[in-house]
Design a protein around this nucleic acid. Structure first.
Lengths: 329, 329
DNA sequence: GTGAAAGCGCTAACAG
DNA sequence: CTGTTAGCGCTTTCAC
């Protein structure tokens, strides 16, 4: 592989001159610069960014730790991150934690060893202690999506509370009075925030919350099928599912048991996955700004890299109600 | 950030001794080695892999160029790549080409500049000339999924021809005689291979292919809806869709026009996306080994990195027929 | 078994 | 405007 020395020899100049040409620094004549650049082009010279990184003490790479890249939600965030980084000339080191704490930890030391300029992490836990190792690396950091209290680190998320308020208000406006809900895990901040939204809207609408029609689940398709049965037996007039996959489970149960949606039962999901609008009963749901979330996270991170002593940001993106068929009009 | 020199000073040894301890090289006493390692632990020393890379001339990173990380198919491949690399101690530099040739090209120079030890690329084009820049970097390379003729590079894919054969044979066995097909783009090798499979099975079954019930499309949900109409008007008794998303479009059209599946029309998809089994009519489809494909690609690549003069491999993974409801039993 | 020193490919003073 | 040189943090010869 050809290096700066070879170019220098070829051009009969010193390596520093070549370096100046390459980095369009000042203090070099236009003429020699053009000449050197042309030779670089001809020889197909590619600067060795490892060597540059060593001396400049910056790698122009940022790490991204995601729970599961095959999850559409995280994939879109990653794409947003990637798009922004690409514009700014940064590379993306992808770390798939596989929803595993030990992996997260391992990637934390891996990323510091790789000397990334910063990292974006979508944590799987909400426990501050699980992220001590990240914090003490002193690498600029942005947390996304899952809120961890008492951390002096920038944080960006979609507003689960307000998104849920919007959709529950919509349902109540349509006349539903007994809305069953299938939540996710009790430890998920997203699930809890959504439950708060549900609770508050009910209260404001003068409806008493009935905890016998509120279930926690693992938020899978199978859970949707399972709790649809429970809830329908408790004669709810609508179901709010924690996400679209769970809503698909409800839809499935209803199809097989001749419960017609939305005539017999209103149904709402959350996330607006790609397939939500493609179902035989298109889902009314909440659209989250996933791509924008990733872009924003990258933007905040790069900003903190360039301006180390800036204050940490907490950004909450507003989701959007998507009205389709599953709740009626 | 603390370096090897600091450790050396702390331990009253030379840097070379610390290096020996860290890399468990020979020529160091067990005692000093343990001592040094303990001090490294205490001080939280993290080796600077940039410096290591410079001298060892290897980065322990590999590049992955994907058309679109939000596509489930590519996401699963990426996860497979990531899982294998993690085991082998390599990092993954993710490049989202966004189905754009210029981006692919840009990432090619980016990756060589980053001095990755190898790259896996899922190309968007089948044109050899579009990948010249990758080839001439001399970086070990593995191509995935989209076949490019006349390239002396390792290649791994799922067998689209045989996958389609399996599903069309299944349909014919069930008694379907007039199977309409909604293909993808005319330039997609996957679409063309699937069409070959369709054609050959028809021929072997003594059925004449009727080109008036074969359509090329952009392979979207909307195309599924659109061509379902065309095909049903031509009184097909079944439809083979190029992928599950298109099949969902067909399903949608049928639901709205009271065509009952599978009673009135058989339907088959391809890919086995996550949602295929969650629909109100679960899709009969072809499952591709996406994760395994990624793992295998990474394995082949690492092997070529470690053994430079090994012969290039061409690997074709066998997909699996998934029988659900949409074609009947 | 250990230390001194060269050098990986580049950038950035400093000198001319 | 250009060249000489030190050195980024590490590995690896080569002496001792």
């Amino acid at each position: 592989m050809i290096g700066i020395k070879d170019i220098a020899k070829e051009c009969n100049v010193a390596v520093s001159t070549v370096s100046r040409a390459l980095n369009n620094s000042t203090g070099i004549s236009q003429k020699t610069k053009e000449y050197i650049l042309r030779v670089c082009e001809e020889k197909g010279y590619q600067p060795n960014s490892v060597a540059r990184s060593l001396i400049l003490n910056e790698t122009n790479m940022i790490g991204l730790v995601v729970p599961d890249i095959t999850n559409q939600y995280y994939a879109f965030i990653s794409k947003g991150v990637s798009a922004y980084l690409e514009k700014r000339g940064y590379g993306l080191l992808l770390c798939n934690s596989d929803r595993n704490k030990a992996n997260e930890l391992m990637y934390s030391t891996f990323l510091t060893s790789k000397r990334v300029d910063g990292a974006i992490v979508i944590p799987i836990s909400s426990d501050k202690d699980d992220y001590k190792s990240f914090i003490k690396t002193n690498t600029p950091l942005v947390f996304v999506d899952n809120y961890i209290a008492d951390l002096d680190v920038s944080f960006i998320t979609n507003d689960n509370y307000s998104g849920t308020r919007k959709i529950i208000q919509h349902m109540i406006r349509l006349g539903y009075k007994r809305i069953g809900v299938i939540l996710g895990d009790k430890n998920s901040s997203a699930s809890n925030d959504r439950f708060r939204g549900y609770t508050d809207v009910l209260k404001n609408s003068g409806i008493d919350r009935d905890d016998s029609i509120v279930f926690n689940s693992m938020a899978t398709f199978a859970d949707g099928v399972k709790y649809a049965k429970f809830l329908i037996e408790k004669s709810v007039d609508a179901i709010f599912a924690i996400n679209d996959t769970v809503a698909m489970g409800v839809l499935k149960y209803c199809h097989e048991n001749s419960v017609e949606i939305p005539r017999d039962l209103g149904l709402a999901g959350y996330d607006d996955i790609e397939q939500a609008g493609m179902l035989h009963i298109p889902l009314t749901t909440v659209h989250q700004r996933k791509f924008a979330l990733g872009e924003k996270a990258a933007e905040v991170l790069i900003n903190e890299i360039k301006n180390p002593y800036t204050v940490k940001q907490k950004i909450i993106l507003q989701p959007k109600l998507i009205v389709r068929k599953s709740c009626g009009e």
